[in-house]
Lab assay of single mutants.
Amino acid sequence: VKKMAKAIMADPNKADEVYKKWADKGYTLTQMSNFLKSKTAGKYDRVYNGYVIHLD
């Protein structure tokens, strides 16, 4: 998940494709939050927020 999150950060155009894969795998927002937690607070906030919007 972190590898794909980094791919989104490097190229935001990949976001919809990645979010669809995550949704197809049934990842919940709680799971995504836990996967994307980082020592650098807020590092993956943009990715998480994008997934929230995708699921909505």
Rank of each mutant, 00 (worst) to 15 (best):
G50K: 04
F35R: 03
K14H: 07
F35K: 02
K39R: 11
A10F: 09
V1G: 03
D11M: 06
K39H: 12
Q31W: 06
A41D: 11
G26F: 05
M4L: 11
R46K: 15
A41R: 11
L29F: 06
M4V: 04
Y51D: 00
N13E: 12
K21F: 15
D56R: 15
K2V: 10
G42R: 05
M4F: 05
K3P: 04
D45S: 08
T28Q: 03
R46N: 13
K2L: 12
V1Y: 04
L36N: 00
K39S: 13
Y51S: 00
K14Y: 09
Y27S: 01
A10K: 14
K37Y: 10
K43D: 05
K2H: 05
A23K: 09
A41T: 12
D56T: 15
M9P: 01
W22I: 01
V47A: 05
K3E: 13
K20S: 10
P12Y: 09
D56Q: 15
A23D: 05
W22F: 02
R46Y: 13
D24C: 12
A23R: 10
Y48A: 02
A7Q: 12
A41L: 12
N13W: 12
F35M: 13
K20V: 07
K43T: 07
A7R: 10
K20C: 06
M32K: 00
V18T: 09
G42S: 05
I53L: 14
V47Y: 06
K2Y: 02
M9W: 05
R46E: 15
T40G: 08
E17M: 10
T30D: 14
T28A: 02
D56E: 15
K39E: 13
Y44H: 01
H54N: 01
L36H: 01
I53G: 08
Y44V: 00
N49M: 15
N34S: 12
T30H: 12
M4T: 05
R46C: 14
V47N: 00
E17W: 12
D24T: 11
K25V: 11
Q31T: 06
D56Y: 14
T40D: 10
L29I: 10
K6P: 02
K14L: 14
G50W: 07
V47F: 04
S33V: 10
G26N: 06
D11H: 08
S38E: 05
I8H: 01
K6E: 13
K14V: 14
A41V: 12
D45N: 08
V52E: 10
V18H: 03
G42H: 10
A23P: 00
K14Q: 10
V47D: 01
P12F: 10
V47Q: 02
N49T: 10
N13F: 10
A41F: 10
T40F: 10
I53H: 13
T40M: 09
G50E: 06
P12G: 07
Y48Q: 03
L55R: 01
Y27A: 00
G50S: 03
L55A: 02
K3R: 13
Y51V: 02
I8F: 03
S38Y: 08
Y44F: 09
Y51L: 03
R46Q: 15
D45L: 09
K43Y: 12
D24I: 09
K43Q: 09
K2C: 14
D45Y: 07
D11A: 06
Q31G: 02
R46G: 13
Q31A: 08
S38N: 06
H54D: 01
K2S: 03
R46P: 10
D11I: 05
Y27W: 08
Y19L: 01
K6R: 15
I53A: 15
T28M: 01
A7H: 07
K39N: 12
F35C: 08
A15P: 02
A23M: 09
D45W: 10
K43R: 08
Y51M: 02
G42Q: 04
D11R: 05
F35W: 15
H54V: 05
T28N: 07
N34C: 14
A23E: 08
R46M: 14
Y19H: 03
A23V: 09
K21H: 14
T30R: 11
F35Y: 09
A15M: 06
M32Q: 01
Y19M: 03
K14G: 06
K43I: 08
R46F: 14
K6M: 13
L36Y: 02
T40E: 11
Y19E: 01
D56I: 15
V1C: 09
D56W: 14
N34L: 12
A10Q: 11
Y19S: 01
K37D: 09
R46S: 15
A15T: 06
N49V: 11
A15W: 05
A10C: 13
W22A: 01
D16G: 12
D16L: 13
Y44W: 08
K25D: 10
K25C: 15
N34G: 12
K39C: 10
D16Y: 14
G50A: 05
K21G: 10
Y27I: 09
K25M: 15
